[in-house]
């Protein structure tokens, strides 16, 4: 029968061949299972090592770590308020700029752009995501920051500075680097991510719905505003959250342009710091257990924040897919 293909073993005992194949099957299964488990182990390992390494800081400062602004390596007093504040403010600035831009680009790519141009333009926007973050940092520091210092920031300070309440956000000297510039660089970096998710969820709208709306005489904008956007609402929020997750954890680009100052200032022009920028700037030189433990605790806080954002994003995107 199959003896010739089964080899010498089979010639002696057909069951031996079957057993060998079963053994190979088992080995392959356990290799695959082990690899999948390793991914889980790595994530648990990251979590465990962050918690373990930050214990000295947690013991010393307790919960007040979260709302202490002071960061003094010389006196061994550490508080996370400034980095947490900086992380949130730069990410919010990034979202405020990136959301309308990426929605605009996604609308352009799905509804307006002539067919032959859709792929090249879409690809070009996605290539923005391929540029390494250090390049964004370089560009932000050497090209964008001087432009901000010379033109954008003086303009904002003159026009918005004197206003009540809002004015505080736009007061002070134009440094070029600072929260606003960091937010702007982050906005550019997350633009391609939000755009591609947005475009994908726009394409989940049944053609029937879209065509019916056009058939009733709706304009392109009305179809977007009243049909496509309401239909894809959850997916859009999910895409935005994915972008937010990126912005929160981004390191190198921010490190170049944030100014690395552990202070909480109302003005968006002021230099500040973020969690990831503090770690990148200080961890290698951190002397003393408490100093490095405080930096690791910052990392743990960042991990918890970005995990929460990602879990929300997944849940929301999952809900649109199951329509």
């Amino acid at each position: 029968m199959t003896m010739t293909t089964m080899g010498p073993d089979a010639a002696r005992d057909p069951n031996a061949a079957t057993r060998r194949l079963q053994r190979q099957d088992r080995v392959f299964f356990w290799l695959a299972w082990g690899s999948a488990t390793l991914v889980v182990v790595v994530l648990l390992g990251i979590l465990f090592s962050l918690v373990w390494e930050s214990i000295p800081a947690v013991r010393t400062f307790g919960l007040s770590f979260l709302w202490t602004e002071r960061w003094s390596p010389a006196k061994e007093i550490f508080g996370a308020l400034a980095p947490i504040y900086g992380t949130i403010v730069t990410s919010v600035i990034a979202m405020v700029i990136a959301i309308p831009l990426s929605f605009g680009i996604a609308i352009f790519l799905t509804e307006i752009c002539p067919k032959p141009l859709r792929r090249p333009i879409g690809t070009a926007i996605e290539l923005l995501a391929g540029i390494p973050s250090i390049i964004y940092g370089l560009w932000g520091f050497f090209v964008l920051a001087p432009l901000m210092q010379q033109f954008v920031q003086p303009f904002l300070i003159d026009v918005l500075g004197p206003l009540p309440i809002v004015g505080a956000l736009f007061s002070g000297a134009p440094y070029g680097i600072g929260m606003l510039t960091a937010g702007l660089v982050l906005a550019i970096m997350i633009l391609p991510f939000i755009t591609s998710v947005t475009r994908d969820v726009f394409q989940t709208v049944p053609v029937m719905l879209r065509e019916s709306a056009y058939g009733m005489g709706m304009t392109t904008w009305e179809v977007m505003r009243h049909i496509v956007i309401p239909y894809t609402r959850l997916g859009l929020v999910g895409g935005v959250m994915l972008g937010l997750g990126r912005a929160l954890g981004e390191t190198m680009a921010v490190t170049f342009v944030i100014g690395n100052a552990h202070r909480v200032k109302a003005s968006l022009m002021a230099p500040g710091t973020t969690i990831s920028a503090s770690i990148a700037n200080e961890f290698a030189e951190a002397s003393g257990k408490l100093y490095s433990a405080s930096l690791v605790e910052l990392g743990l806080i960042l991990f918890v924040i970005s995990f929460t954002v990602l879990a929300l994003a997944k849940w929301l995107i999952g809900r649109t897919e199951s329509y």
């Binding site: 962050l50 954890g249 981004e250 990392g299």
Partner: peptide
């Protein structure tokens, strides 16, 4: 997916400790 979007600086911290 969590690992995919974990901030890369945190992976640096982890391997540093490991």
């Amino acid at each position: 997916d969590v690992l995919l979007s974990a901030p890369s600086i945190i992976i640096g911290l982890f391997i540093n400790a490991l």
